[in-house]
Design a protein around this nucleic acid. Structure first.
Lengths: 211, 211
DNA sequence: GCTTATACCGGGGTTTTCCCCGGGTAGCTC
DNA sequence: GAGCTACCCGGGGAAAACCCCGGTATAAGC
């Protein structure tokens, strides 16, 4: 019996190429292809038999990786989900792991390693390459102690991602300069930075704001 | 005679998958695969026969798309170069077009369309899908008014995208504080911003630096 | 009544950033 | 040599950012 794989990735070229590659592995077959999470869920629902493993891109339009993972987990707890991403980004990995995926694969993985990973997931239910294994504990810990950022702070953060001075930001937020100074101070601590530039960069990395 | 293709992409999985896909097209063969521009150039040099078309990812480590394009154009003017990117980003497209590539393909192109594009490039020497065709003139115009940013300025820019003070940056670059102040000043003007935060954000938008 | 959390504010200070003034060298093209 | 570009540098001063001290009010929850 072949190992049944479903793939979702918003880049059609990659989706089709990867599909072809995996179909070429001995003992594997592709049962569904989709360009976003929603399409994948629909296709899986329509299948007579569930796939064994779902390969899920993290960043997709319509429905992204974490959301699709959560829904899949709920509806089909038997399906193993592996995240597939370009970014070795801590917060992204945490989000996917927390959502319930059993592996986080990078897109620059070698095909041979991918095949190995897929077999391992199918047999043991999980796979971690050295890199993510080493960091796994740290990441989970980090996610647990992750500071929460309030609405008002987020508002300040988006305004800080601009040419505006703190004075101008204070006016836009209808508070005193001292107050935004307080936001700055608390965010420096929460994001572990010591300058506005660092704060902006960290906010972008954590995708608290977008470019 | 098969159409000979060379590919460079830093994501191994994509590289190998795409290679497999194209090798499956009727009348095509892959003559070189590389994970960056430098490696591609080396491999092409070592080949007995030049490839007809080079598929080049825009964002790569070691040597990126634009640089590789320029070098390829110079050394092998007969080779057609097609850019392959995820981002439909104006400045990126401009850079690649100016560097001398004859097509800008998005990674979410359908395989069938890719095959069509490759044949068209091989026969007529160029290919433009509707989307890029529409904007072509505007982009070139925009590129002509675009200010150039020197190597040293780019170096400063990446260092500025951090928690470092200008003083620390000056030390890292082995120049006086006054000199980095000069870089700051000229970049403020070129990027049309008036604060370090603005500069960092604009640099990220124009992909002069990456997160 | 007390703690906890969020939001807000005033006044003081130092360091960094920003913005001017001016200067120079090396290399390349015409 | 003139003219261009890239690169480098010193000093001074105003503004913004950074970092302390302190405080109040309001609402939620035990």
């Amino acid at each position: 019996m072949n190992i049944k794989i479903a793939i979702a990735d918003d880049h059609q070229l990659f989706l089709k190429s990867l599909s072809l590659l995996i179909a070429g592995f001995n003992g594997f077959s592709i049962v569904a292809e989709a360009v976003n999470g929603k399409e994948l869920l629909d296709k899986i629902t329509a299948l007579p038999v569930q796939p064994d493993i779902v390969l899920l891109d993290v960043n997709m339009p319509v429905m992204d990786g974490p959301k699709a993972t959560a829904l899949l987990q709920k509806q089909y707890p038997g399906i193993r989900i592996a995240a597939l991403s370009m970014k070795e980004n801590d917060t992204t990995i945490i989000t996917m792991l927390k959502a319930g995926c059993c592996a986080y694969l990078l897109k620059d993985i070698h095909p041979v390693e991918l095949e190995k990973a897929l077999r391992e997931i199918h047999e043991s239910g999980y796979y971690h390459n050295d890199a993510s294994n080493v960091n796994y504990r740290r990441l989970i810990l980090q996610s647990e102690q992750q500071e929460t950022i309030t609405e008002r702070e987020k508002e300040f953060l988006s305004l800080a991602c601009s040419d505006l001075t703190y004075k101008a930001i204070a006016q836009k937020m209808n508070v005193s300069e001292r107050t935004v100074d307080g936001y700055r101070e608390i965010l420096f601590h929460k994001l572990n930075v010591q300058s506005r530039t660092g704060m902006v960069l960290e906010a972008l990395r954590r995708q608290l704001v977008s470019l």
